[in-house]
């Protein structure tokens, strides 16, 4: 009685249904997650390097970054960074004598989520790099490898088996946390679903569909990361 055949028509594409709205919402969700994840990895790599080989001041700053950003709820950080980021950008732009700009929602979302993600990435990557025996990089040094070559040939392949499980969890986390962007009014999957549900009054149907879409994304991701882990572990002794 709640899933009458007519209701399923609401999922159609085009003017009669919300199928296309949900589809583009899902695309937006994946876009945000991928870009924010990439941004987070870059921040995380820099952060891990800084923590392991930076000076005292840099280490204190990075410790503050990872501690604060991992202790405060994502939703609060997203709201703070979203308003602070767009505000300070506009202050900068107007002080230079330009018109106020409306920041692209996607860019803001990626920046905000990526910045939060970076704190978690820093810790995962730092732990993974530290797990690589020092002797291996020292051997690279002894052979006269440049720092970059040492990172690419020794540290990176040796740390990946330790990093991939953590990186996988962070990816799942960012797919799920991307839904929090709905709170600042950016139409990704969660908000698109809520709008469609609100207009049609078919809340149960639409939220079940959204849950199924998220579940599909996360389950496919699990497969991908499982494959990645097997690949970077090849040649290593089997886990118990």
């Amino acid at each position: 009685m709640f899933f009458a055949a007519a209701n399923i028509g609401l999922l159609a594409f085009g003017n009669t249904g919300y199928g296309d709205e949900l589809f583009w919402g899902a695309v937006r969700t994946v876009q945000i997650a991928v870009f924010a994840y990439a941004f987070g990895i870059i921040l995380g790599l820099c952060g891990a390097m800084g923590k392991l080989s930076g000076g005292k001041t840099l280490r204190v700053v990075l410790d503050l970054y990872t501690t604060l950003f991992r202790a405060v709820p994502e939703l609060v950080l997203i709201l703070l960074l979203y308003y602070a980021g767009t505000d300070s950008l506009n202050k900068l732009v107007t002080s230079l004598g330009f018109e106020r700009i409306e920041l692209n929602g996607l860019v803001a979302a990626v920046f905000v989520l990526g910045f939060v993600q970076g704190a978690y990435q820093t810790e995962v990557l730092r732990a993974a790099i530290q797990a690589v025996p020092v002797g291996q990089t020292e051997a690279g040094k002894a052979y006269g490898m440049s720092p970059f070559l040492r990172f690419r040939r020794i540290t990176l392949p040796a740390m990946l088996p330790y990093a991939i499980p953590g990186l996988g969890n962070l990816w799942l986390g960012i797919v799920k946390n991307s839904s929090l962007i709905a709170v600042v009014g950016f139409t990704e999957l969660a908000l698109a679903t809520r709008q469609a549900a609100g207009v049609s009054k078919q809340y149960l149907l639409f939220f079940l569909v959204a849950a199924a879409v998220y579940l599909t994304i996360t389950m496919l991701s699990n497969q991908l990361f499982g494959w990645l882990e097997r690949r970077v572990r090849r040649g290593q002794p089997k886990l118990a």
Partner: peptide, 18 residues
Amino acid sequence: TFVRGTPLLIQLWLLYYG
């Protein structure tokens, strides 16, 4: 699998609004 694979936000809305 369901709980860990979907955002808490969606679970909450599914329960409250759905």
